[in-house]
Design a protein around this nucleic acid. Structure first.
Length: 682
DNA sequence: GAGCACTGC
């Protein structure tokens, strides 16, 4: 964290709204001073020379080097970017926006002029913009309208080591784009001369140190540079033997720190909510037995599904004579930085979602606990050294650490490819032929091709169809794009958009509360629809809209709280719905068409999208897929659990200890027959 | 009758 110089109080009071020029320039001078003190500043001239000489640079460096804020400014100030834009891509929205704010301040310009950003639902840039921070998903979307990314003279891919699906797709495309834009001559002298290239592209890949070779190999001839970070030393302790019960081991290690080490907050990494809750209970139990003169313990659980506001105490300094103990999932590894942490306890475990493709089309998600990677372990340890030297206690042996894979398997190897495959088809590319850093399994590719064929997005020649093009223009999984298109024929676009936007929001609609589970299920009954979870969602959306029309903001909040609904999910869904309505308009689909109180049209529309996700009731009460033949159970959180519905459609399958179908609705058997007949015709 | 890490358009 950077500290800002305190401003003179008097002036601050005199001008509460607009800062005077003198304050602004004071601020600017302070920022310039900070800039020059960053570790990277010493190498500025050498870096600029390297960027001038090489078309691709791989920049390796730890956190705290300032590379993400400084390099774009160096490129701009040195004229390397010429007249074009510099794109800096990030895997997360918050990072993109906060970096842009920071760099605009350093450049002493208003955000949105020469420095801007672009993320979903939020953008600040203009025709003047030269440095644009953006999410990688955003620039991948831009590929569809501008396949050569001709607006950009430099593209900087930050956090490339995370290997998100979109980062990988972007890197693959950048390589081919550069070949086209920069010109090349092969050994036989064929191709263009570099000198003829009117609009060359420079690529800069930024990554953590571990994956240097991989990027170097992919971009042959790339210059690899190292920049130093600014991290305080962290002393690492491994346990002498493997721990079977890591929750118990974490508890004992915590009390060892608590009694033997000086004040400072403790951050414990655990795989999931369940372990967090159980560790919270045991730590609290022993806290009562502490001697009176010792520090008290304040436990702060932290995970994504937590109700909003619950986790705010994490960011406040610990009260006097108190040690904060933060129990967190991976959320504290990259997404959120918690101040005051001096000790880290690392269980070495995390949960990983992995998509298993099936050659019948579609597949299922597994969500299982596994060992972390070396780079993840280093990242976790680093969380103890943000503000001063720290300590990291690993609940695994040094040999176990060495046995861990270096870094996580790229996302492209463990997720459904349908959406990306379709997007690439739109710009005439084939995922199978694209030169990627890592090639996904053939099985996964085949499965996605089948899905897209069954949805009518591709024909037998694997060419994109008119329907496929429409599906690709929705920022949704292809199945839901297909449902919207079907809803046009069933006259229920309005309702399907309402449902689909909630399904694709990242926050969950229903708040989970372990302590108030009875109250939760009672509240949920009010919205429950006999047809299942999709229409239950529609009930919630309709009820919320009614409240929103008549009540103020605070009453809406209160209403959500009373019904155990996550308002964040509803607000997010409303943004998504606006975006989907715009897409409909572009495609000439009237988004206001409604089916009123009828249910079947909605179910039929969803059925067209979820045609691969149908299962039939068996005599023993379980369900059997119509495609894939797996036995699945309806998840207990579903409105249709134990309802013995003869035939169902579902949003997804998740394997934890059993295969559960989630997001379930009743579907008439006659519809399945109709669907089969339609397939025969095509 | 179960339990769900994290992103993104």
């Amino acid at each position: 964290m950077k500290t800002r110089k305190p401003l003179p109080k008097k002036q601050n009071n005199a001008l509460p709204l607009v800062s005077s020029p003198s304050i602004a320039s004071l601020k600017h001078i302070a920022l310039q001073e900070q800039r020059s003190k960053l570790p990277i500043a010493k190498g500025k001239d050498a870096l600029i020379r390297e960027f001038q000489e090489h078309d691709v640079t791989v920049l390796l460096g730890e956190t705290g080097s300032g590379k993400t804020t400084q390099i774009p400014q160096y490129l701009l100030e040195s004229g390397i970017a010429r007249g074009g834009m510099i794109a800096v891509t990030q895997p997360r929205k918050v990072a993109a926006t906060s970096l842009a704010i920071r760099v605009a301040a350093e450049q002493n310009v208003t955000l949105g002029t020469s420095v801007g950003y672009s993320v979903r639902f939020d953008e600040r840039f203009s025709s003047e913009t030269r440095i644009k921070y953006m999410t990688d998903g955003m620039i991948v979307r831009e590929l569809m309208s501008d396949p050569l990314l001709s607006k950009y003279s430099v593209v900087i891919v930050d956090e490339a080591h995370e290997r998100s699906l979109r980062t990988d797709l972007l890197i693959a495309n950048l390589k081919t784009i550069q070949r086209q834009r920069n010109g090349f001559r092969d050994v036989k002298g064929k191709g263009k001369d570099k000198a003829d290239a009117p609009n060359p592209l420079k690529i800069i890949i930024m990554s953590a140190t571990l994956d240097a070779e991989k990027f170097g190999q992919f971009f042959s001839g790339a210059k690899i540079l190292y920049v130093q970070g600014r991290q305080h030393p962290v002393k690492i302790y491994h346990s002498s033997q493997g721990q079977i019960d890591y929750v118990d081991a974490a508890m004992r290690t915590f009390y060892q720190i608590h009694t033997d080490y000086p004040p400072g907050d403790v951050l414990i990494f655990l795989p999931g909510q369940e372990d967090i809750e159980s560790l919270e209970r045991t730590i609290e139990m022993y806290a009562k037995q502490l001697p009176q003169d010792s520090l008290s313990v304040l436990i702060c659980p932290m995970y994504a599904a937590q109700a909003a506001g619950q986790n705010s105490k994490v960011f406040l300094p610990a009260p006097p004579k108190t040690r904060k103990c933060i129990l967190a999932t991976n959320i504290a590894e990259t997404s959120i930085t918690i101040p005051g942490v001096k000790y880290v306890i690392d269980t070495g475990k995390c949960k990983e979602k992995r998509y298993l493709a099936r050659n019948t089309g579609g597949g299922l998600d597994t969500l299982l606990t596994r060992d972390i990677t070396q780079s993840s372990a280093m990242q976790r340890a680093g969380r103890a050294g943000r503000e001063g030297s720290g300590h990291c206690f690993r609940l695994y042996t040094e040999n176990a650490f060495k046995a861990m894979p270096l870094s996580a398997e790229p996302e492209i190897m463990r997720c459904s490819l349908s959406s990306s495959l379709l997007q690439l088809k739109c710009i005439g590319q084939d995922l199978e032929k694209l030169e990627l850093m890592d090639q996904p399994a053939e099985e996964s590719m085949k499965s996605s091709l089948i899905v897209l064929f069954l949805l009518g997005a591709l024909n037998r020649e694997k060419e994109i169809t008119a329907v496929g093009r429409q599906m690709a223009s929705f920022p949704l999984e292809p199945v839901y794009g297909r449902a919207i298109i079907a809803s046009k024929d069933y006259d229920c676009v309005h309702e399907v958009l309402d449902i689909v936007s909630v399904l694709s929001a990242s926050s969950k609609l229903f708040v989970e509360s372990f302590e108030q589970r009875d109250a939760v299920s009672e509240a949920r009954k009010k919205f429950r629809h006999v047809c299942g979870d999709h229409l239950t969602i529609l009930n919630v959306v309709k009820a919320y809209q009614e409240i929103a029309q008549s009540e103020g903001k605070s009453d809406r909040k209160e209403w959500c709280r009373r019904h155990f609904l996550n308002e964040r999910a509803l607000l997010e869904a409303s943004d998504i719905r606006d975006q989907l309505r715009q897409t409909c308009q572009r495609l000439g689909i009237d988004h206001s068409i409604s089916c009123g109180d009828k249910e079947d049209p909605i179910i039929f529309s969803l059925g067209h999208g979820l045609a691969m996700n149908i299962a039939l009731l068996q005599p023993d009460g379980t369900y059997k897929q119509t495609i894939g033949q797996s036995i699945v159970k309806i998840h207990p959180s579903s409105a249709l659990c134990d309802k013995k519905t003869p035939a169902i459609i579902y949003d997804e399958l998740v394997y934890t200890n059993q295969i559960y179908a989630r997001g379930v609705s009743r579907i008439p058997k006659s519809f399945i027959i109709t669907l089969g007949a339609l397939k025969q015709q095509s």
